[in-house]
Amino acid sequence: MKNKFSPFFKSTFLVLALAAMCVSMAYMMKEPKISGSGIVVVVNKENPISGLTASEVKLYWLRKVKKRWPELNKNIKPADRKNRCPEQDIFYDKVLGMSAADVESYFIQKQYGNAEKPQDKFSNDNDILEFVATEPGAIGFVNKNALNPNVKVVFTLE
């Protein structure tokens, strides 16, 4: 049976199909999804702070305006994820309102201008929880499902 489609149409169709697949994959990657019911921002249990708004989390985590926790008088130590992950994408986008490149530049700028230590980076949520549980000035974000009782939740992003 004679093929009714010419090689030109077949190759065009193939290219378009691949392009459509790439576009849909990019679209799916654009909206990060996390398992569980959201992310939480946690601090050390010694920290007397009880709850924070999203904008306060941003100010503290980026060490904007304040470099030390009021009352506790300890260095604010932000904890971040080492590699890109949905939790980080959501935290950067919804809480900080910044791109990953902007966050990176921001901490390089703080280090270059004022010798401020950049954020500590960890491979997974458990490492962040362990850091926050042991460092009085720490503040980090984790998946709500990973939460344990050794830290204090100060903000929840559903």
């Binding site: 300890k74 260095n75 280090q111 010798a115 401020e116 230590k117 000035g137």
Partner: peptide
């Protein structure tokens, strides 16, 4: 840069 302790950095 180095954070020598909670208050001192170089």
């Amino acid at each position: 840069t180095s954070q020598l302790n909670d208050k001192v950095a170089v």
